[in-house]
Simulated assay, not measured.
Amino acid sequence: MLIDPVPTGPVQTEPRGFVSAPDQQDQLLAVLADAGVELGEYDHRIAEWLTRSPGQDWGTVATIASWVKRAADATTT
């Protein structure tokens, strides 16, 4: 199955694919780091909860990561 990357523009349809929970967490943390977001211990716990909670699939995590990426990009342009 094709895995859609984190969108860089407005999300019109759910990002597709299966990404394991640890990989989802890695992707989310990478986007946050690229955006310059400093994370505390509780932030890390919430990122883990978000990516490992039942019902949180790649489409959800990719969309949230997309928001962070686009917000960071908007502040640098």
Rank of each mutant, 00 (worst) to 15 (best):
Y42I: 13
G17N: 09
P15T: 01
T76C: 07
A72L: 01
Q56Y: 11
A65V: 06
D34W: 04
R70E: 07
A74P: 11
P10S: 12
M1W: 13
Y42S: 10
A72P: 02
E48T: 15
P7Y: 10
P22I: 03
L50A: 13
Q27Y: 05
E14H: 11
D23L: 09
E41S: 12
Q25V: 05
A21S: 10
P5T: 05
E48F: 14
Q24Y: 03
A47N: 04
A74M: 14
P22S: 01
T63P: 05
V68L: 01
Q25W: 02
V19L: 05
G55L: 11
L28V: 00
D57K: 10
V31W: 00
T63H: 02
Q24H: 07
T75P: 04
V68R: 04
L32A: 07
Q25G: 05
P10D: 15
K69C: 04
A33D: 15
F18C: 02
T63M: 00
A71F: 14
A71I: 12
P54K: 10
Q12L: 15
G9N: 14
G17H: 09
W67K: 02
A62P: 00
Y42F: 12
R16S: 12
V31F: 06
D57Q: 13
R45C: 02
T77I: 10
D26K: 07
T13P: 06
D4K: 01
A71S: 13
P10F: 13
G55V: 11
E38Y: 02
T60E: 03
V6D: 05
Q25P: 04
P7D: 04
S53L: 08
K69L: 14
Q27H: 07
D43M: 03
Q24K: 13
R52A: 07
A21Y: 03
D26W: 04
S53D: 06
V68M: 01
E38S: 08
T51G: 01
D34V: 06
D23Q: 13
W58F: 10
V31K: 01
P15R: 05
T8K: 08
L50N: 05
M1C: 09
T63Y: 09
V19Q: 01
S66C: 02
D23G: 04
R70Q: 12
L2F: 14
D34F: 02
S53A: 15
P22E: 03
A65T: 01
A47R: 06
E48K: 09
D4T: 11
L39D: 01
W49A: 09
E41L: 09
S20G: 07
I46W: 14
T60Y: 11
R16Y: 10
Q27E: 15
A21T: 08
V61H: 06
T76I: 12
G59N: 11
Q27F: 06
L28M: 03
Q24W: 07
